[in-house]
């Protein structure tokens, strides 16, 4: 079987296998928790990359899909029973809801300039946040609520494995999708929308499908996130998460899939360490400044992100040097 895979796939598979063994070595609770967060946000960031990096769509409300997944799981466990059956049901509900919402948002605004989708998603996410705050009988409002987990997930190693396996499957799945003819069309849309339209493709359809797939994957990330916390509150709809995931995607490298994973790792560790350094110097309490600054510098000087920049150096392909963000959505 290995013979049929390319070198990249083998390396990625090996890396995921190594990560499976990591809990044997890393036993610290907090380190394991950080790794779980990286996996969860890695998935979330990949979903964002499909939108931003591959199709050239920018969303400011991506967190709403994440929140939809989170709440559907939490409510399902809270209202019914924390069993694997309900978990599956929760995933289905979350995914379907996210699919519907992203479909509607996409149909409405993806034919317009890129700002409109950004603004509409921002507004929709705001509405979801308000709904979560107000519909207290269901969501517990701002205080949130805790809930039990299915027996099999009581062991945090199992959560670790669940998240890792999900990440691996989605990574290979999305990699396949983006390498398929469908993915090629998405990238062509990112480069020059009119051109693709004039070649006879129905650009809107492609963009809407990308937006739906992305929303669905983000909802699944929300499911995993909430399982890892065993607690839900309205913060799962907060714009901060959208900004985080944007940053992960940009720093890691848009349009690379692996980049956002690396970005997720960096940002999560940075969060952890920089807030830990607050005792050392007050400036670290204001770590968002560093964060914002790094981000601005990346956008100006390394628009390809870490992975994109390395790849461009390695291949020295003249066209790859034209940064991937340029020429998008004008």
């Amino acid at each position: 079987m290995l013979r049929h895979m390319n070198k990249g796939t083998v390396i990625y598979l090996l890396m995921f296998l190594l990560l499976t063994l990591l809990p044997l070595v890393v036993t610290g609770r907090s380190m394991q928790f950080i790794l779980i967060q990286i996996f969860v946000f890695g998935i979330f960031a990949m979903s964002y990359d499909l939108l931003l990096g591959y199709t050239g769509i920018i969303s400011f409300g991506h967190v709403m899909f994440f929140g939809i997944g989170a709440y559907s799981t939490a409510i399902m466990f809270d209202r019914f029973e924390p069993t694997v059956g309900y978990l599956v049901l929760a995933v289905i509900v979350g995914v379907v809801l996210a699919g519907i919402v992203s479909f509607i948002a996409g149909i409405l605004t993806l034919r317009l300039k890129s700002h409109y989708y950004a603004m509409l998603t921002l507004a929709l996410a705001g509405l979801f946040l308000v709904a979560a705050e107000k519909w207290t009988s269901f969501t517990g409002g701002n205080d949130g609520f805790t809930f039990g987990l299915p027996d099999i997930l009581r062991d945090s190693n199992m959560i670790y494995l669940l998240c890792l396996i999900s990440l691996a499957l989605l990574f290979f799945g999305l990699r396949r999708l983006t390498a398929s003819p469908f993915g090629k069309v998405l990238m062509a849309i990112r480069e020059n929308e009119q051109r693709v339209e004039s070649l006879g493709y129905h650009v809107l359809h492609y963009k809407v499908v990308a937006s739906v797939v992305s929303g669905v994957v983000a909802a699944y990330a929300g499911v995993l996130y909430i399982i890892s916390l065993r607690f839900v509150d309205t913060s799962v709809f907060a714009t901060d998460f959208t900004i985080d995931v944007l940053l992960m995607t940009i720093i890691g490298g848009v349009g690379t899939l692996i980049g956002p994973l690396i970005g997720a790792g960096l940002v999560e560790f940075a969060h952890h360490w920089l807030s830990g350094l607050a005792d050392v110097h007050w400036i670290f309490e204001r770590w968002i400044i560093l964060y914002g600054t790094v981000y601005i510098l990346v956008v100006i000087f390394f628009p390809l992100g870490i992975v994109g920049t390395i790849r461009a150096k390695l291949t020295r392909h003249p066209l790859r040097k034209r940064n991937d963000l340029k020429g998008v959505g004008s």
Partner: peptide, 27 residues
């Protein structure tokens, strides 16, 4: 200036600058 004509880069960079301006206020 560095990002004229590129909507996505503009949105990203101005968002980052917003965060910086906001936190600098606190500093």
């Amino acid at each position: 200036r560095p990002v004229y004509g590129n909507h996505i880069q503009q949105i990203l960079i101005t968002l980052g600058f917003m965060l910086v301006l906001q936190e600098l206020i606190k500093v």
